[in-house]
């Protein structure tokens, strides 16, 4: 009797209310009595959906790099710009901080996300027992930074809207921008489909009902938890 699932309980994903799963009381799938959200002890088909979106993301990343994300026309000379090319231009302009931001958002983050989500999925499928906490942190990081890759698409959109100066200079978006946008969306869907609770299923280390720790700055997992008055919680 430790996790909600093991106790026959399920927490609402939207409002957090705990509901007891019982056969006679609920339709399938059961719904939260407070906010009517659908309740699943674990997200259905989590691993399969997450793999499917991830593969779609990797596939979309190929045209994102092959096709130009935008075309720059200066005094009639049109030039295609790819994702990696944009980084080199900024680097040559000596705008190092922005060059690094662009490189991280458009190359490092997507590739790391592919690797991280694949690793998490494989670790769940193989039933890894080690480093559950670190894998949860990796999952959080993936979830948090994934959407920031959209910055590249927005930069292209803003440049295309702003740089429309007659015969002097023009910027137009390319097919690569759409492909890159799809990469970001697909990998976000992949992370959303992945149920992090699966990382912890089968964990045998903790006692029955636990009391939460506090944010006082030194809340750590394990048994070193203290209430605000200094009394140990666990």
């Amino acid at each position: 009797m430790r996790t909600a699932a093991e106790c026959g309980l399920v927490a609402c994903p939207a409002c957090g209310t705990i509901t007891r799963l019982s056969v006679e009381r609920f339709e399938v799938p059961p719904k939260c009595q407070l906010c009517f959200a659908r309740l699943h002890s674990r997200k259905p088909m989590s691993i399969q959906k997450s793999w499917a979106w991830l593969v779609a993301g990797v596939l979309a990343y190929i045209p994102a790099n092959v096709y130009p994300i935008m075309y720059t026309t200066v005094f009639g000379n049109s030039e295609p710009n790819t994702i990696v090319g944009g980084f080199f231009v900024l680097w040559e302009m000596k705008s190092y901080p922005i060059a690094i931001v662009v490189f991280v958002a458009s190359v490092v983050v997507p590739v790391l996300k592919f690797v991280a989500v694949s690793y998490l999925l494989i670790s769940i499928q193989r039933g890894f027992k080690h480093s559950r906490y670190d894998r949860t942190r990796l999952f959080r990081l993936t979830e948090f930074i994934g959407r920031w890759s959209m910055i590249d698409v927005f930069v292209v959109a803003i440049l295309a809207a702003l740089v429309q100066i007659g015969s002097v200079a023009q910027i137009a978006p390319g097919l690569g921008a759409t492909a890159f946008g799809l990469t970001v969306i697909f990998t976000m869907l992949s992370a959303l489909a992945l149920d992090s609770r699966l990382i912890w299923d089968g964990d045998q280390d903790l006692a029955s009902v636990n009391r939460p720790g506090h944010i006082s700055g030194h809340a750590k997992r394990g048994n070193n938890l203290y209430a605000n008055d200094g009394t140990p919680l666990a």
Binding site: M1, R2, T3, A4, A5, C7, L9, V10, A11, P13, G16, I18, S41, R132, Y133, T136, F139, R140, S196, R197, I199, W200, D201, D203, D205, L206, V209, N210, R211, P212, G213, H214, I215, S216, A219, K220, R221, G222, L225, A227, N228, L233, A234
Partner: peptide, 27 residues
């Protein structure tokens, strides 16, 4: 309260205003 990231059940305890209770297992 069940942790939304690892599903561990916790008993709610009173915490001071401005504080946040965290999961014992996954933080």
């Amino acid at each position: 309260v069940a942790c939304h990231e690892c599903d561990l059940l916790h008993e709610k305890v009173a915490i001071e205003i401005g504080a946040e209770a965290r999961c014992m297992r996954c933080n």
